[in-house]
Design a protein around this nucleic acid. Structure first.
Lengths: 339, 339
DNA sequence: TAAGTCTACGAAAACGGTTTCGTAAAAAGT
DNA sequence: ACTTTTTACGAAACCGTTTTCGTAGACTTA
C-alpha cells in the first residue's frame, strides 16, 4: 500500500520533519536515526509524492516539450526526433523528465501553452518550431518561464533559441550546384510561414545573386518538410514550361519525395540533380544516395539543453546560437550530370 | 503575478470553495456568481496549480512513457517513433499529456520505474519494449498502475500488451522467399534477448520447416534493430564459408545496413535478396526499394491508447492483442534473382 | 401559514509534503 | 563546574486545491 511520510515517521518513532529532512539530505539529523528511517522507508517501499513535493517546494524537475505548430506534425519528423532525443539525453542526466504536451486539447478548450506550463509549473520548456507557430506560443515566450527554441525565434527575456545557420545552408547548396555547372536551380522550401523557410529562401536568393544566377519565381515552391509534399511539389515543377535540372529541397524527406516524383514521371533520374537538407539516416541509402546539407542534430539538442539549464539556474539569459551546417557530398548530383 | 484560488475568491467576494466548484463544474453555484468569478479569473489569468490539484484529487491526467531498455535507444527508432506518435495523438484527445522518463537517472541512483511512476502518480503508463528489459520494469508491471506494453509481454493484473504477430512476420518473409525460389535464407534478428526477436526467430524456424528448408545456424545472427548493426552482421555473413543469398532482417534499418554492406563489399547487389520489417518511410526510396513486412504502427499506437484508457477506467484488464503484419513487395528480391 | 424542498454558498478538514524556528541535551571551552 | 556552542530533533505553519457537510434563506406545497 501507499505509505505517507506521516506513517513512516510513526513507524520510525520520529517526526515528519525528520523524515523529510532525510529525504532532502539535510545535515541536522543523527546517523543512527537516519539509518533506521532509511531502512524503514526501504522496507515499505516508500516514495514521496511528486505532487506534494512540488507543491511545497516550488520546483518540478520537469521540462515541457512543445511543438509550436498547429498540428503537432513535427513530433515524428526525423530531424526533430534526433534533436529531441539528444536534448532528452542531456536533460536526463541533469535529473529532468520531459513532459510532452498534446496539442489536441486545443480543439476542445481555450487553453494555451502558457497556461499549460503554469499549470504544470514546469521548470522550463523547449519549443520546437519549423511550422507556422500557434500564436499562444508567444505568450509563453514573454513569460517568466525559461524557454529555449529550436528553429523558432524567441525574444522574451527568459528565452533563447538555437538553429542551424539557415542562409548558410542554402549557400552551401547553391555553391555546390554552381561549381558542378548547374544553372537551372529550383528551391523546395518547407512550411512557407516558418522562419527557417524564410531564412533559407533568403540565403538561396542571395547566393544565387552572388554567382550571378537568375532565380526563376516559377521554381520556388513550398512543401511541409515531409516526403509527400516533396513529391507533390516536384510534380508541379515538372509541369512548368521550363523544367529545372537542379533541385534544392529544404529537407531530405522532401528531396526523397522529389526523387520519387521524377522517377514515377518516367524521366531519367540522372538528368536531375538533388540536394537535400538534414542528413537523416536514410539519406545515404536512397537511390541515388543523397547529397545533402547536414545539420548537427546531436549538437543542437545538447546545446539547447545546456542553454536551458543555465537559464533555469539564472546563469544566462537571452542568447541565440547558430550552428554551422556541413555539405555532405554523395551521388545525387554527380559531376557528370551537369551541363 | 501568479494568482491563487484564495486571492480570486477574495476579489470576487466568495469563498475558495465556490471558486473551486466553478473550476470543477459543480452545479451548486449561482449563475451570476459564476459569471463574475469566471470574469475575474480570466482578467487575472488565473490557472489552478497542477500540483495542488493532483494532490487533492488523486488524478494526474499524465501518462508515463517508458523505454524498457537499458539504454533508451528506441526513443529514436522510426518504428517506435511512429507508434508513440499515434499513441500520443489519441491519448491527447482524451486529455492526457505524456511524461517521458529519462533513464539516465539510473546511473546516479537506485531509483526504479515503479518508484518514478508512483512519485509522479501517473494515471497509467506505456512501456516500449524491443530491447533487453530493465528488470525494475516488472515491478511496475505487477503494481496497481495500469500499464500497456508495446513489443513487451506484461503479465500484471493491471497490465496489457500489444504487438504485431511476430511469428507471422517471419512466416510471410520466408514464404515470399520460398515462392521466389530462394533456399539459402539468413536471419538477422534484433536484440537477441527481446521477446520479439525470439518470436520472430521461432516463426522463422517453423516456416522454414514447413517448406522443408534447412536452417543454417551460421546464418542466424543478431543485431540491435539499427542500421549499423545490420551492416556489421551482413559483413559477418559475407565471411562465412557459404554465403546466404536471401536475407531476412528484423527491421528495415538493419536491412538497409545489410544492403550497404554487400554494396561496399563490391558484390553485385542483384545477386542478393532482402526482406526487411516495419515498412518505415524510407524503405520505398532506398536502392533497391525494400520488400518488407509492414507493421501497422498507427494502429498499434491507437490500440495501445484505447486499451490503456479502458484499463484506467477499469473497464477491462489483462488483455493482449496481436496485430496482423502485411507483406509489401518491392524490388529488393526481384523474381529474376532467384535460382 | 406551517412544514418541507431547493438553492447557493461557506467552514474546515483533508491531500502529502517542506521549512523555519525554537529548544533540550550533549559536547566543547575556560 | 559553569558558560557557550553544537547537535539532533519536533511543532507548526504553509504550499494551493478539493470536497464533505452544514445551513440560511427562498420557494413549494397542502
Amino acid at each position: 500500500m501507499k505509505m505517507t511520510i506521516k506513517e513512516i515517521a510513526k513507524l520510525a518513532g520520529v517526526s515528519q520533519a525528520t523524515v523529510s529532512k532525510i529525504i532532502n539530505n539535510y545535515d541536522d539529523v543523527g546517523a543512527k536515526t537516519k539509518k533506521r528511517v532509511l531502512q524503514i522507508m526501504d522496507e515499505y517501499g516508500y516514495r514521496p509524492s511528486y505532487s506534494a513535493q512540488s507543491l511545497a517546494k516550488k520546483i518540478t524537475k520537469v521540462i515541457g516539450v512543445i511543438y509550436a505548430g498547429k498540428i503537432n506534425a513535427n513530433f515524428n519528423h526525423p530531424f526533430f526526433v534526433e534533436v529531441v532525443s539528444s536534448f532528452k539525453k542531456t536533460m536526463g542526466s541533469e535529473g529532468y523528465d520531459l513532459l510532452f504536451f498534446s496539442n489536441e486539447k486545443f480543439h476542445k478548450s481555450d487553453e494555451n501553452y502558457l497556461a499549460r506550463c503554469q499549470h504544470y509549473n514546469v521548470d522550463g520548456c523547449i519549443i520546437i518550431g519549423g511550422e507556422e507557430v500557434e500564436p499562444s506560443i508567444y505568450d509563453l515566450d514573454k513569460s517568466e518561464i525559461p524557454c529555449v527554441g529550436v528553429d523558432i525565434e524567441l525574444s522574451g527575456k527568459k528565452s533563447a533559441y538555437i538553429m542551424t545557420d539557415n542562409p548558410q545552408i542554402s549557400a552551401l547548396a547553391v555553391e555546390h550546384f554552381y561549381l558542378l555547372g548547374q544553372r537551372d536551380i529550383a528551391f523546395i522550401g518547407g512550411k512557407e510561414e516558418s522562419v527557417i523557410s524564410k531564412q533559407r529562401y533568403q540565403g538561396f536568393i542571395d547566393e544565387m545573386k552572388t554567382y550571378g544566377l537568375k532565380v526563376n519565381p516559377e521554381w520556388i515552391v513550398y512543401g511541409d518538410f515531409f516526403e509527400d509534399s516533396g513529391y507533390e511539389k516536384m510534380e508541379e515543377l515538372l509541369q512548368r514550361p521550363s523544367i529545372p535540372k537542379a533541385i534544392f529541397a529544404a529537407s531530405d524527406l522532401m528531396a526523397m519525395g522529389a526523387i520519387r516524383a521524377v522517377k514515377e514521371s518516367g524521366r531519367k533520374i540522372d538528368d536531375f540533380s538533388f540536394i537535400g537538407c538534414d542528413d537523416i539516416v536514410a539519406s545515404k541509402h536512397i537511390d541515388p544516395p543523397l547529397t545533402t546539407v547536414k545539420q548537427d542534430k546531436e549538437k543542437i539538442g545538447k546545446m539547447a539543453a545546456y542553454i536551458l539549464n543555465d537559464m533555469i539556474k539564472e546563469k544566462i539569459d537571452q542568447t541565440s546560437i547558430k550552428i554551422d551546417p556541413e555539405l555532405i557530398v554523395r551521388a545525387s548530383c554527380g559531376a557528370n550530370k551537369a551541363g
